[in-house]
């Protein structure tokens, strides 16, 4: 099933018709996912799948080309003493670092994702956001992680947000567009669901929970609501949209719970890095430590793994 096969309709949806979220139901469902027992071989396979879905991220004001090269090196060589590991899906950096990351990764199939549109606040005029997006794509970004204008969304200016996402999507060209809803600033699950629907109709290839700069970042209830929105959008339009929870997922066990939730909400078709990503910086090391534990039977120390 290919993304390009289904044309994106750029009709603004009627957000008044968006399904209301049953908050208690969502929490109970999430608790169920966390009670699944994933052991032995299944656990190893799940952990490897998690690794393959990670967007290894560095989004700090203190980032330097050296730091980004180090991150890319880590993306290419997660833990060479363990053979058979997948590499991560992408590295995620600021626009000024796209060129550095692209060069450091060479012609490997690890993608370069760039945040854009005045990440993390999104508080700049549209033409600057568009220009920033074009620059990142010209520098070689394969994926663009944009933030929505939360202020406008909360004010009810859905049309403004919709047009903005559609315009950025156009500026992306061939690059995939991930739309960050910054769920920690939206407040309620109902708004998160509405923002998801809005973003998908405006052309998002992925919807993403958070920038990682606001607490709470990704949580399982929020992610479940977004996954359900993706499912219903798929039933409605036949177009698959990807999901990226980001921020706050630093433990392997939690990541496996997310996979369980993905499997039981969207099904097998979404269980690849084409359709699901983890935005994380320290998750990879925890997963590696768990894999090493499975291989050796001995609990591991961060001292023996590359720095985040």
């Amino acid at each position: 099933m290919s993304l390009a096969a289904v044309p994106v309709s750029t009709q603004m949806p009627d957000l008044g018709q968006v399904t209301r979220v049953d908050e208690v139901g969502v929490k109970e469902r999430v608790a169920r996912f966390q009670s699944r027992s994933i052991k032995k071989e299944s656990k190893v396979e799940a952990l490897k799948m998690v690794l393959s879905m990670i967007d290894l991220t560095t989004l700090e004001g203190q980032d330097t080309p050296g730091k980004v090269r180090q991150l890319c090196q880590k993306a290419l060589h997660l833990h060479d003493s363990m053979p058979g590991l997948p590499h991560v899906a992408a590295v995620c950096v600021y626009p000024t670092m796209v060129g550095v990351a692209k060069q450091a990764l060479g012609d490997n199939d690890i993608k370069v994702a760039s945040v854009a549109t005045a990440f993390p606040s999104g508080m700049t005029p549209r033409q600057i956001k568009l220009e920033e997006t074009r620059i990142a794509v010209d520098d070689g970004a394969d994926e663009i992680d944009m933030v929505i204008s939360r202020g406008a969304f909360l004010q009810g200016e859905y049309g403004f947000v919709f047009d903005e996402i559609a315009a950025i999507k156009e500026a992306c060209g061939k690059a995939h567009l991930k739309v960050i809803l910054e769920t920690g600033e939206l407040g309620t699950l109902d708004r998160i669901r509405r923002a998801s629907v809005l973003a998908m109709h405006a052309g998002a290839d992925f919807i993403k929970t958070s920038t990682g700069k606001i607490q709470p970042a990704a949580t399982m209830p929020v992610t479940l609501v977004m996954l359900q929105a993706i499912r219903d959008y798929y039933y409605e339009t036949g177009r698959m949209v990807g999901m990226k929870p980001a921020g706050g997922i630093s433990k392997a066990k939690l990541a496996v719970h997310y996979l369980v939730m993905l499997r039981e909400t969207l099904g097998q078709a979404w269980m690849t890095k084409e359709w699901f990503r983890f935005g994380a910086s320290s998750l990879a090391n925890d997963v590696l430590m768990q894999l090493q534990k499975q291989a050796t039977g001995v609990y591991q120390s961060a001292d023996y793994f590359s720095k985040d």
């Binding site: 001995v298 609990y299 961060a302």
Partner: peptide, 8 residues
């Protein structure tokens, strides 16, 4: 055994 083997 765990006390003795834990890498951390």
């Amino acid at each position: 055994e765990q006390f003795a083997s834990h890498m951390d």
